[in-house]
Design a binder for these strands. Sequence first.
DNA 1: ACAAAAGTGTTTTTTATACACCCATGC
DNA 2: GCATGGGTGTATAAAAAACACTTTTGT
Lengths: 234, 234
Amino acid sequence: MPALADFKVGVDNVIFSVDLVQNRLLALLIRRNEAPYQDQWSLPGTLVRQGESLEQSAYRVLSEKIRVKHLYLEQLYSFGGPFRDPREAADSFGVRYLSVSYFALVQYEEAALIADGVSGIAWYPMDQVPKLAFDHSDILQYGYKRLRNKLEYSPIAFDVLPEVFTLNELYQLYQTVLGEGFADYSNFRTRLLKLGFLADTGVKVSRGAGRPASLYKFDAEAFAPLKDKALVFV
Amino acid sequence: MPALADFKVGVDNVIFSVDLVQNRLLALLIRRNEAPYQDQWSLPGTLVRQGESLEQSAYRVLSEKIRVKHLYLEQLYSFGGPFRDPREAADSFGVRYLSVSYFALVQYEEAALIADGVSGIAWYPMDQVPKLAFDHSDILQYGYKRLRNKLEYSPIAFDVLPEVFTLNELYQLYQTVLGEGFADYSNFRTRLLKLGFLADTGVKVSRGAGRPASLYKFDAEAFAPLKDKALVFV
DNA sequence: ACAAAAGTGTTTTTTATACACCCATGC
DNA sequence: GCATGGGTGTATAAAAAACACTTTTGT
């Protein structure tokens, strides 16, 4: 009977937000202040504690780094080959480090970063992310792919938009994440309204010049029957 | 500093195959011969050994249970709450059991089950699967969902079809997994052929009565540019 | 008045769906 | 010749894509 591996399980979070003012997609990164990979940027993570579920652990990491009410979170993937963490290297048949990654999208406007004064923390625009510690660059890319899919196929956008929003704000969010190459505003608008789960509040709001926009809200009840329908928003 | 949890990591496989003769979707189950859940059916699984990657472990489970050349395998999900395995219960702050599940689709015709004479092993039609041990019923359902998605959006069918196959065989495979409620044969045919990665070998084959069918083969090269294109086959 | 942003409508193209029908073979 | 499964074509409906145009505001 071959010997079983003993594991510590880490949770690493890929945390995204969208800055709707500057139209930038951001990822939350932490600057490591200890070996290995000292002073390199990495995903926020932690090791799972006794009595704690994986998801609890993921929420804990998140809440230790940012204060935010509105978010979406789900499990991403588990990376568990031997030797992915250099801390194993010295004693390769000792404890293994398995990383269960989670993916989160949080509301940028309300998210307050919690600086602990020891390690750095920052929102990085996705196109400026440096090479990360461990295999975190791979995990980040994987999360980015998931973000784009989720946005297209499910209503996670409404978890991070304000209670009421203009269709243009919604459009900006999609465009920022998915890039330029998709439907124009007019077609996007028509498609989404036809789906029937965006309720016009009647309230108008004026953002500087131009015609005032209607504020809409997401109607979860009207959306319910569309669950599992493999919607495509874009 | 709160104490970290110590884990053993298990790999549980959701293994599907499609019987093209009887048009049945099958799942591979193992009858447990020890506590807990003695004599109940479960997913084939194992614990990860020293020096072994998660994926290696998944392939090992598979190869211990069936001999098969043609298959598709990918990671499914990680289930890791405390108390999901009763073996933890006695000593809840001792070792935790985390299950990383994998999903596989294997070729039914060539798959030879390996009976070890101790525990039972069997292909169960998906609509006759009993309640499983642990949380394996949930995992199986999750895998079933993934199977249907994968089949619709990616070319995994060709990993388990013979080198050459008729369009009708392909259609039967899709219909067996996805159920009756989808495109008829004629439209399925047209759509797939238009995608351009099915090459007609010119060879005809006669299955009993009726006009002989053309044998087709999957042209991986012609498919390559369609990768990441979010194809829909159905 | 005019620029800017919101919102509507129209036209064209592509894709999905439902069938009707023809073709080649075994019995 | 006719049942059986293979394969093609057509007619309709729905969805996607491109883009022109109107409306309402601030300056």
